[in-house]
């Protein structure tokens, strides 16, 4: 889209093109398809039993939603591989948001969770109304949240409370809280965090976590992520059997 700065989440201009008008939101549940990249993908079109979603013969076209036909059933939510479809109902005192959720453990109905905005930042409190794990959803749970109505266009994810299981280093299973604790105890560089927690010392050699560790250090110390001393990168760039380096075996 011209004039859009790509940040990994939808810009205001992109949102304006996909969000339903207030009148439609007030009429009852409606799908919100936050899909703005022309990629070859069309499961949403077949997912809708009411023919409300059209991609058409050009498979890279963006889905077009006929909001008059949409009943807000949510069957399209789990079919979107990009997890870009939500169903929002702002017709009552509280808004409800149905969203795809692929993390474990799943919440339970009645749980109070932190509602997150599109950037992953806390936006308020939400109550879990329903967790749908029907077999037809193929592993993508559809969770219904109740949120204050003013957050209907804001909340797009949630974080369970009371859990410290957000992994930063997947290889060595080091959590966000452990890394923040290490920074507070004086680890100010990616290498220092690595020595304190083993984050980045696993098989993937920090490919997954080092940027996240930089960001956490920056957040904790009030720096820009670019100011945080990065981890020392050493060859080999991918995992190799030691025999390959010794010349004893052919590498496939």
């Amino acid at each position: 889209m011209p004039g859009v700065k790509y940040s990994g989440r939808l810009s205001d201009a992109e949102l304006a093109a996909v969000l339903p008008p207030a009148e439609r939101l007030a009429q009852g549940p409606v799908a919100v398809i936050e899909c703005v990249q022309s990629i070859p993908c069309n499961p949403c079109e077949k997912a809708c039993p009411f023919g409300a979603i059209t991609v058409g013969d050009d498979i890279t076209a963006l889905p077009a939603l006929d909001r008059a036909k949409c009943k807000g059933c949510g069957l399209c939510i789990s079919r979107c591989p990009g997890l870009a479809i939500f169903v929002v109902d702002a017709s009552g005192d509280e808004a409800t948001i149905m969203l795809p959720y692929e993390y474990l453990p799943l919440p339970a109905a009645g749980d109070v969770v932190d509602a997150l905005d599109r950037s992953g930042k806390p936006a308020g409190t939400a109550r879990v109304l329903k967790v749908n794990t029907a077999a037809g959803l193929e592993g993508t749970a559809v969770v219904t949240l109740a949120v204050p109505r003013k957050l209907a266009d804001i909340v797009r994810n949630f974080r369970p409370r009371g859990r410290d299981a957000i992994y930063i280093c997947r290889c060595n299973e080091v959590s966000e809280a452990e890394i923040r604790q290490a920074v507070r105890e004086g680890a100010r560089t990616v290498a220092a965090v690595k020595l304190a927690t083993r984050a980045g010392m696993g098989l993937c050699q920090g490919r997954t976590c080092r940027r996240l560790v930089s960001r956490i250090i920056a957040e904790e110390t009030g720096q820009h992520p670019a100011e945080v001393l990065p981890a020392t990168a050493r060859p080999p760039v991918r995992t190799l059997p030691l025999g390959t380096l010794a010349g004893g075996e052919d590498d496939e």
Partner: peptide, 12 residues
């Protein structure tokens, strides 16, 4: 399977 492109080593 997590990344599916040989990067994360979850599927070893």
């Amino acid at each position: 399977v997590f990344c599916g492109i040989g990067r994360c080593t979850d599927c070893i």
